[in-house]
Design a protein around this nucleic acid. Structure first.
Length: 637
RNA sequence: GCCACUGUAGCUCAGCGGCAGAGCGGCUGAUUCGUAAUCAGCAGGUCGGGGGUUCAAAUCCCUCCAGUGGCUCCA
């Protein structure tokens, strides 16, 4: 064994350093100033602890919180800290796993149900450990020794049993807490000042012993206390944008105890939904769609044909009548299939694009309901495109293009997901493979970035989904394009081709905004209730300064109403400031003030939402300004 | 559906075994006001529903309903 090893650093520098030098020491030699931010190291690309000795020539690189690996190490170390604190609080708790996630970490325990008091105790124990700066110390054990150490923890024993023979079995000591873990970790708990426990909940998992739920503690770690404070501030702000609060305050929608999961849309909310529908319908008219309306209830036999009876029944509202079972439609597709089949079809009719805005009913599990984003009754801007094989590609491209343009109108950021064949599916796997590859090729050709979600497809076909995030970063599916070779077969759909033969069409299921209710919820959180002027329930409010201008105010309101603007007058019982404030609180895009000055000059003082400034405009200028903003569907007022 | 928590006036919340409260909103009156809250008065509650414990329950217990955060599931 040689005395020195050659280490190559990311900038290409090669150094000869003592054999057995710790990774952290070597990195400090290389970059003394930056080294305090290094929380782990990469040796030949593999993450290791900073105190790991290096015993051969290697590529050595630092890991900081800026790196994905670094963030994961910090989250995972934070999970260890939670486990240590929880075991100190409840000694018979059995830790299972504590991985990093996309936005933080969790640790699952086999333990009695937790209480908020437990969480306080855990937080206190975590603080104490952070102050004590306890090192994370790695040990590698033999299999038997490891099994002895975790005799009382069947979960850890299972992980040990699952470790391949020959692979190292490592544990980490943090103070007196020992956890089975591959590592690596931050050097000590002093790095974990920015850890925050978010909450706990029971989870159902096959990992738990039968009939037993695990308790999951969730949290998030930041490199510093300041970064955590910043996150908590953003979170508080996000909570203020919660669409459920805004919906109530702006009188858009409400819920009744007597109908959980069924939104009641108030007059203001109807205005917004109608504008959204109009937005979509304009596209339908331009793009050659025909709108239809199919029944809300269908008999069991229809759902047997469509496959819903076998694959979706537990999510359906059922109703018995005339001694037959009927189901409230959870999707529009079966009705569209029946329309296509209702007479002989020619290839000349394809692509046949049928749109439908019908209320859909899905018996979602009670615990999953959430404001407007997860409901039991909703309307989609739905459509079914009956196409030939050759028409798939141009139609899907057009759809992706239009989804992008629609979301851009709202300045939303979205991601695409390709969802493939689920465990329960209809039809021939080979046909599925073909459909999946068609969608994938279109995504690739368009240069669209996307994620693959294996097994997340609909039971009748693969799909491309668009996901929007709410103010707390939770993703929600909205627009979707689904390729379906199954339902046309099951319904026996046929058209006569130019060759005189009968052919089976392919169906594309698609939505743009998805559920209009869900879309409204996300849009409210995205805008903080400051809807674009074209969507605002009240677009402008006219404020006469004194009684003397109330006639003129009425006149202005009428003039603007004639331009199809939604205008109100706020009478002078309240002070001007109060009325301005109220308009701002109600998120009204335009406030128009008429006082003596304006009367003398024939002008209007325009105050735009969110701005302290006012502008003096002539009436024609005002009308053209407001008209343009609304007509062009401008995002900002 | 599962686990935990929460439910008091239209809204936000205080009260947590001994007389049901505040602010905002609403109504009435006064004020006619120049860009984010004028002043005063009044009304408004089976303390989510039902059951129990207690001399006494908004308060403690049970149960049902609804909501919140996760889990599972999903547009």
């Amino acid at each position: 064994m040689s005395e020195e090893i050659r280490l190559t650093f990311p900038d290409g520098v090669v150094r000869a350093l003592p054999n057995g030098i710790r990774a952290g020491d070597a990195l400090r030699e290389w970059a003394p100033r930056r080294s305090p931010s290094f929380l782990a190291a990469l040796v030949d690309g593999a993450p290791v602890d900073l105190d790991r000795p290096i015993v051969q020539d290697a590529q050595l690189a630092p890991v900081t919180f800026e790196d994905r690996v670094g963030r994961e190490i910090l989250q995972h170390s934070s999970a260890h800290l939670v486990a240590k604190a929880l075991v100190e609080t409840i000694p018979d708790a059995r830790p299972t796993v504590g991985p990093p996630t996309d936005d933080g970490f969790y640790y699952d325990f086999d333990v009695r149900p937790l209480t908020p008091a437990d969480l306080d105790a855990v937080r206190a124990a975590m603080d104490a450990a952070v102050r004590a700066r306890e090192p994370f110390h790695r040990r590698e054990l033999g299999r038997e020794e490891a099994e002895r150490l975790f005799t009382h923890n069947p979960y850890k024993l299972r992980y040990i049993a699952d470790t391949p023979v020959g692979a190292p079995i490592s544990v980490y000591d943090t103070g007196r807490f020992v956890d089975l873990c591959r590592g690596p970790h931050v050097p000590d708990t002093g790095w974990l000042q920015g850890v925050h426990v978010l909450g706990f909940s029971a989870i159902t998992t096959e990992k738990a012993e039968p009939g037993r739920a695990l308790q999951r503690v969730r949290g998030i770690g930041f490199p510093t206390r300041e970064a955590l404070a910043e996150y908590l501030k953003l979170r508080t702000e996000a909570e203020a944008r919660d669409h459920r609060t805004l919906g109530q305050r702006l009188e858009l929608f409400t819920f009744f105890d007597e109908s959980p999961g069924f939104p009641a849309i108030l007059p203001n909310g109807i205005v917004v939904l109608r504008e959204l529908e109009r937005f979509v319908r304009e596209h339908l008219d331009e793009a050659g769609y025909r709108e239809v309306r199919t029944p809300l209830l269908f008999s069991q036999s229809l759902y047997e044909t469509s496959g819903h009876w076998d694959h979706y029944r537990e999510n359906m509202f059922l109703t018995e009548a005339d001694g037959r079972m009927f189901g409230w439609k959870p999707m529009n597709c079966p009705g569209s299939m029946l329309i296509f089949r209702s007479r002989a079809r020619s290839y000349r009719e394809l692509p046949m694009r049928l749109a439908e805005f019908a209320p859909l009913h899905r018996l979602e599990a009670s615990g999953t309901l959430h404001g407007l984003t997860r409901v039991r009754e909703f309307v989609q801007d739905d459509a079914h495109l009956f196409v030939t094989e050759e028409q798939i590609e141009p139609e899907v491209r057009t759809l992706l293009d239009w989804i992008g343009r629609a979301f851009s109108t709202f300045r939303l950021k979205w991601t695409y997901e390709l969802s493939t064949r689920p465990a329960q599916f209809l039809g021939d796997p080979a046909v599925w493979d073909r459909a999946e590859s068609v969608l994938e090729r279109i995504l690739k050709d368009s240069g669209i970035e996307y994620k693959v979600s294996p097994g997340e497809g609909a039971f009748y076909g693969p799909k491309i989904d668009c996901h929007l995030r709410d103010s707390l970063g939770r993703p929600w599916q909205t627009g979707t394009v689904q390729l379906d070779y199954q339902l046309p077969l099951r319904f026996g759909l046929q058209y006569q081709g130019p060759d005189g033969q009968l052919h089976t069409p392919v169906v594309i299921h698609r939505t743009i905004l998805g559920s209009l209710e869900r879309f409204l919820g996300i849009l409210l959180e995205h805008t903080g209730g400051r809807l674009p002027p074209w969507l605002a329930p009240v677009q402008a409010r006219v404020l006469p300064v004194t009684e003397a201008q109330s006639g003129a105010a009425q006149g202005l309101a009428e003039e603007l109403s004639a331009d199809h603007l939604r205008v109100e007058v706020a009478t002078t019982e309240e002070s001007l400031s109060k009325r301005v404030r109220t308009a701002e609180v109600e998120r009204i895009p335009y406030v128009l003030v008429l006082g003596e000055k304006e009367m003398a000059g024939g002008s209007v003082a325009l105050r735009v939402r969110g701005s302290k400034e006012t502008r003096s405009l002539s009436r024609p200028e005002l009308r053209s300004y407001l008209g343009q903003k609304v007509r062009e569907r401008a995002f900002d007022p």
